[in-house]
Design a protein around this nucleic acid. Structure first.
Lengths: 207, 207, 207, 207
DNA sequence: GATGAATGAGTTTTCATTCAT
DNA sequence: GATGAATGAAAACTCATTCAT
């Protein structure tokens, strides 16, 4: 009974934390970090200001937690996507498709995420970058392995260093998705993942 | 004599303005827009606070001027680079090489520039974006024309829409250059532009 | 119990607000709107600067609230004064006496009030004026009615337009009271309201 | 020759000073003392900022000079007006008419003047008041003498202390003129000075 | 444990005044 | 003697954070 009570509290806590993160995501993605006040977040999340500070030690911590939470989720999904599929092409296709789904489903956090992981990372004091970049690195490594494996198995030509190909694929997918974010009607990617892959594959795949 | 005096003053003005822009570039690129105060910029530029406001009507104006000044410069250089070269491949090579030079020479402004032109653009009020994005669009259009022309002349295979290829090339170059910015020793691009082109060219160019 | 707690807080709030208004009245009436800083008011009221801004959204709001609060109070008192009294002369006497009491009791706000309602009204953005002037107009209308009624009942001679007489009475009372404010010992008004009335009445009242 | 040259310079100086005062009057009366900058005045007067400071030691001095200049002029006119006329009634009539002319001709400075001489005098540090008030006092004394003389000669009834009658007349004229300033079409005074005098005269003059 | 009132350091911006040219 | 660029003190206002209830 004791344990159950604690668990319930824990659950409640978790839910509250989620509510706070959700509220702040909405505000941050709409107005940007510096144009949102803690008061505003508290009100929007329907908590007292002090309660917010019970869960996050300061504004930066709240922001960081928000980004990290989603980044982790994305990381997990993407890592998994590369496990599914029988051969290298299938795995890459899965990766590209999953990344597209992530963008489509989490438009608002994506903006924040790229505000951080790309050039603009000086918004918030570093430290956030570090962990995210490590995860990014893991993706790239895994992608690189797929390319390497494909080459070893002679399914891919050795047109470039596998790691560079990984970087290239990551870059292309992100770019076309960001393009799609801005003008969804003009860009085909998330619904047609093969379009992007083709650009790489034409030269990559042995005819 | 009259004229010379005016010119001297004008030159002095220009120099002061440049000093202010340089000082603010250093601070903005190091700490980000919101973490730099006008006082700080004034001190770093060795002017009085009021003098700063004689040249820029407010903080945003200073920031905008800073970004625009460099963006225009980059734009001009890149547009020109695509005119040089006898055939499409040469033009693309020039583009990639010039872009590399820009990154190498203007490391600090590049960070700011990408903070703006990429996802994080909600930091600063729009309007800046607009002009920059228009210029970006012009690049891409010109790149697309090169790809289209290459296809027409059967030097390139029609592996994708020319505009998409332009976006792809732009994305790849930027990505590899940002990578190089972070860890210059580990990445080859700016000194070996062909590496990147190859990724595209392997599939693109008719054997 | 719930209710009492709320009431206590409300009372406390109201007291704080009053303290702020009192402190700012002292400073404004001594030094003028533009020569008093919010910091100064906060210190004098023994609150933090931020607390001041919790109660008043900006300096003008504080000033406006201050003036309006007293102006309303004065308005109510004066309007009521004209209801008391059996005949027109009595009503006018009450008005003059009440106006004198207001001046005597609220010396400092009177200075501010006249800074606004008289010629100097361009100090502060309009809007304040409007409401105050409307109230002034109501006074004058009511005074005019008394004069008109007195004329109709043949107690007053028709020496001038009733509204002009109202203006005249208002002007005379204010002038003599402001005179008294500056040199209280030299002027008799507030203690001898009839002196002023006489000036008008000599010609006004039917012998 | 020397002398003439100096005189010319002196004339020029005087003209420049006048231009500055005229320009600042326009701005002050439109926007109020605190909402006009020295830069603005210099530009509007078409002088360099430094030149302004050659003529007036600071902003307050400029403002004070402006007010004083006109106040002196008004004073002289009004004092003179009370000399013209054969009997007391005629003198008072002249005074009232002249005051009306002053208001009509110098609308813009009148606003400033009353901002100072009336309740709002705390806008600018005192000292200005003193001299103006002395002049005012002289008016009132002279008016009082006229009333006293009229009483002595039995043309006026002794309905009140002559000085109080002077104050009353001054108050009434000012009030009705300020009223006319705000809504010229609704008030008759400046064109019909007798209307105001009547209010006093009805009781004052022996039938 | 939750609350939200209170805090005050820190920011942007203006403008009277000076002084080198 | 005129000029106007340079100055920096001072003001209004915000908001992350704390802590008494």
């Amino acid at each position: 009974m004791r344990k159950e009570k604690l668990t319930r509290r824990e659950k409640e806590k978790r839910r509250q934390r989620q509510d706070m993160l959700t509220a702040s995501l909405e505000l941050f993605s709409e107005k940007g970090y510096h144009n949102v006040s803690m008061q505003e977040i508290a009100e929007h999340a329907e908590f007292a200001l002090g309660t917010l500070y019970k869960f996050f030690k300061n504004k930066e911590d709240l922001y960081t937690s928000l980004i990290m939470e989603h980044a982790k989720k994305f990381h997990d999904k993407l890592m998994q996507s590369m496990d599914d599929g029988d051969d290298e092409i299938e795995k890459l296709r899965n990766y590209v498709r999953t990344k597209g789904e992530i963008f489509v489903n989490d438009v608002s956090v994506i903006r924040l995420y790229f505000a951080e992981s790309q050039g603009a990372s000086f918004n918030i004091k570093a430290g956030l970058d570090k962990e995210i970049l490590e995860d990014c690195e893991k993706h790239l490594q895994k992608l690189a392995q797929i390319f390497a494996s494909g080459m070893k198995r002679k399914r891919f030509r050795q047109i470039a260093d596998p790691y560079h190909l990984a970087v290239a694929l990551d870059s292309l997918t992100t770019t076309f998705l960001l393009l799609w974010l801005e003008k969804p009607e003009q860009h085909p990617y998330p619904e047609d993942p093969d379009g992007i892959l083709n650009i790489l594959f034409q030269g990559l795949i042995h005819p």
